[in-house]
Amino acid sequence: MERGSMELAGLRIHEGFHERLKKGGFKGRVHSVFQKAVNIMDEEEVLYTLLSAEMDEGPMALQVNAANLSALMIRPGDPVHGDADRLTLGPVRFTLRDVPVYELLQEEYVPSPFLSENLIRARAVLETRKEKEQSAYEVEMNRVLKKRVSSLKQAFLEENTDGILSASYSLVGLGPGLTPSGDDVLLGILTILNRKNHPYEQFRPLFEEIVDYARMQTNVLSYYGLRRAYDGFIRKDITDFASALLKKEKFQQELERILMIGHSSGQDITEGILMMLEIIETRKKECNNGN
């Protein structure tokens, strides 16, 4: 099918992508095309993303006025160039002038009287969803994942640095897909570790080593998900759920949103978030009991 030129409007852009385009001379290529996202690799092999209008705000991303990006005739390998006013991918130009810029901010960790009950509710929903797995492969993958997450949880409880590193390395690249299950769990963990004033702040620097390890041990899309997460840029639906766990209202609504991410990514990210917060709750109870 012949490809004709097309012009569409940008809707919102992440501050990091905006700052890069303001410098001008942005060049690269289309890396991959999906219905809700188009990934771009620039000349320095840094990943940026276009998101469909229905997606939530994401890191280093531009949300555009189109529902199905795979229908735009953009193809992997197409040249990309842009500046502060426009971004062109193959035959499609996106206008950026006066497009609103957003930040991806994370709230501080604040102890909450609602957390314990919300964790129990979220865990029950998550386990029910996992029981719906169909294939023998998915059942086995969930068993392996659960065992390795349990090892990581224990290492955190013991504040065992070597154990945290070893268990985290065992999760990198675990599972199939664009974002393997193990990587998604680690992203969920980073969602909590990136919040200031949580009890395990001192272990966050370990994850720079884990993210560096992931560069060669998982695929490029999953690596950049972890890289952005470590840098503090996490998509809005994920951070909104983490915040909702600490509050009385909107918990169920945000839980449903995060569970809708990908085929199983939402479940695995939720697993990581719940794990870290369960660790914090366990340690709080131990301290309250005088242990």
Rank of each mutant, 00 (worst) to 15 (best):
residue 4 G to Y: 15
residue 4 G to T: 12
residue 7 E to I: 12
residue 8 L to I: 09
residue 9 A to M: 06
residue 14 H to R: 07
residue 18 H to K: 15
residue 19 E to P: 03
residue 24 G to E: 09
residue 26 F to W: 06
residue 27 K to S: 14
residue 27 K to D: 14
residue 33 V to T: 07
residue 37 A to H: 05
residue 38 V to G: 05
residue 39 N to R: 00
residue 45 E to S: 15
residue 45 E to T: 11
residue 46 V to L: 15
residue 47 L to M: 15
residue 49 T to N: 08
residue 53 A to P: 02
residue 56 D to S: 15
residue 68 N to C: 14
residue 69 L to N: 04
residue 70 S to C: 10
residue 70 S to M: 12
residue 72 L to Q: 05
residue 73 M to Y: 14
residue 85 D to R: 14
residue 91 P to Q: 03
residue 91 P to I: 00
residue 94 F to N: 00
residue 94 F to L: 04
residue 95 T to D: 00
residue 96 L to I: 04
residue 99 V to K: 04
residue 101 V to P: 01
residue 103 E to Q: 14
residue 104 L to Y: 01
residue 111 P to S: 04
residue 116 S to F: 05
residue 121 R to D: 13
residue 122 A to W: 06
residue 127 E to K: 05
residue 127 E to L: 07
residue 130 K to W: 00
residue 131 E to V: 05
residue 132 K to Y: 00
residue 133 E to P: 04
residue 136 A to K: 14
residue 139 V to W: 14
residue 140 E to K: 15
residue 148 R to I: 12
residue 148 R to S: 09
residue 149 V to D: 08
residue 155 A to S: 10
residue 156 F to V: 06
residue 157 L to M: 08
residue 162 D to L: 15
residue 163 G to I: 06
residue 164 I to F: 03
residue 164 I to P: 04
residue 165 L to T: 01
residue 168 S to R: 01
residue 169 Y to E: 11
residue 173 G to S: 02
residue 191 T to Q: 03
residue 194 N to V: 08
residue 195 R to Y: 00
residue 200 Y to W: 07
residue 203 F to C: 02
residue 210 I to D: 03
residue 211 V to Y: 11
residue 222 S to A: 00
residue 222 S to E: 02
residue 226 L to Q: 10
residue 227 R to G: 11
residue 232 G to H: 01
residue 233 F to A: 15
residue 234 I to Y: 08
residue 240 D to H: 09
residue 243 S to E: 13
residue 243 S to Q: 13
residue 243 S to H: 11
residue 243 S to P: 04
residue 245 L to N: 10
residue 255 L to I: 01
residue 261 I to V: 00
residue 262 G to C: 02
residue 264 S to C: 02
residue 266 G to T: 04
residue 267 Q to D: 05
residue 268 D to T: 05
residue 271 E to Y: 11
residue 276 M to W: 02
residue 277 L to V: 05
residue 277 L to I: 04
residue 278 E to A: 07
residue 279 I to H: 02
residue 280 I to V: 07
residue 282 T to G: 07
residue 282 T to H: 10
